[in-house]
Amino acid sequence: MDDGARRAELAASLAEVGERIDRACAEAGRPAGSVTLTAVTKTYPASDVLLLAGLGVTDVGENRDQEAAPKAAEVRAAGVELRWHYIGQLQRNKAKSVAAYADVVESVDSVRLAAALGKAAAGRPAPLEVLIQVSIDGDPERGGAAGDDLGPIADAVASSDGLRLCGLMAVAPLGWEPDRAFARLAELRSGVVAAHPGATTLSAGMSGDLEAAIRHGATHVRIGSSLLGMRNLLR
Rank of each mutant, 00 (worst) to 15 (best):
L210H: 08
A5S: 09
L55A: 03
E129F: 06
E9V: 15
D179L: 02
A194L: 07
K119P: 12
A183L: 02
A72C: 05
E129Q: 11
L51Y: 07
L90Q: 12
L52A: 07
S207H: 07
R20P: 08
V60I: 07
R6A: 10
P127H: 12
P127Q: 11
E19T: 06
R20T: 15
S110E: 01
D161S: 14
S110A: 09
D22Q: 14
Q91S: 00
W176P: 13
A199C: 02
L113P: 15
P173C: 00
S207R: 15
D3T: 14
I87M: 06
S135A: 08
L131Q: 04
L113I: 12
Q89D: 15
S207F: 02
R231L: 03
A218T: 11
C25M: 06
V40Q: 13
Y86F: 08
D155G: 03
D103E: 07
A194G: 15
A15G: 04
A28S: 10
G191E: 05
A154V: 04
Y44R: 15
C25W: 07
R124W: 00
G138A: 03
L14G: 05
A126H: 14
G18A: 01
F182D: 13
T219V: 10
E141W: 15
V75D: 11
V108G: 03
G147I: 03
S160Y: 00
F182T: 12
E106Q: 12
A53P: 13
R215S: 01
S160W: 00
E9C: 13
P178N: 01
H220R: 10
S225A: 15
M230E: 15
P70D: 01
L51N: 12
L128D: 03
V130F: 04
G88E: 07
E67A: 08
R215V: 02
L82C: 05
P45R: 12
L50R: 10
L188P: 08
V60L: 04
P70C: 00
R23Q: 06
C166M: 04
K71H: 06
G54R: 03
T43N: 12
E177H: 12
A116Q: 04
A115E: 13
A102T: 07
H85G: 08
V192M: 01
R92H: 06
R64A: 05
E177V: 10
G217K: 11
T200D: 00
R92N: 13
V60F: 03
E19F: 05
S135V: 02
R64D: 05
E106Y: 02
R64Y: 13
A12P: 09
L50D: 15
C25R: 12
G4C: 05
G138S: 05
A158L: 13
